[in-house]
Amino acid sequence: MPWTRDEMAAPAAKELEDGFYVNLGIGIPTLVANHVPAGIEVTLQSENGMLGIGPFPYEGEEDADLINAGKQTISELDRSAYFDSAQSFAMIRGGHIDLTVLGAMEVAQNGDIANWMIPGKMIKGMGGAMDLVAGVKKIIVVMEHTSKNGTPKFIPECSLPLTGKNVVDMIVTDLCVFQRPDHDSPFRLVEMAPGVTAEEIAEKTTARYVS
């Protein structure tokens, strides 16, 4: 049985360590915040200029000046800090953020990622994704194993315009987890959803990986 969206967040959350500063993308990556292991303190960064993202505000306490990068209202914590966008990306580009979790349309076997545009379709822009994959220490991609029509998304080479070259460290899909120790090594299949077989993974993956 494939993992649910919420279950897909769990393997990514296992990578969190005490004291980590983390940036979570929009969608499934946001759910990683619900799986932070007990006894571990993690500070969430929002690239629009905040460290220490708090939960959604109580009804009636929304503040238009306090939003996350998805433009949703949030709240602050006692340890929160605000800063401007240049400072925000200085800490991202400068390697001060330990881990980021983001979605993708394609990941290649060499760690290339494509997640910002489909030629011929309306381009919304890359936002902060290119900066995050270029600067954050560990990059985790969370995505469906195949597209809606069954096309593999972990593939030999990206067909879509890249967001970053050789940057991905770990891939969590609804079927399994691939990981690699460094950017010169191939990805290895390290975990499968309950009931999913290695044969099924092989069938739905065109990228080369170590099983």
Partner: peptide
Amino acid sequence: PQGTLAERMRAGGAGIPGFYTRTGFG
């Protein structure tokens, strides 16, 4: 890219006409 845009503004304001970044390489 968002961080490049922020830095391009910061750099412009700081009198820096160009800078090198890893963002967007490739």
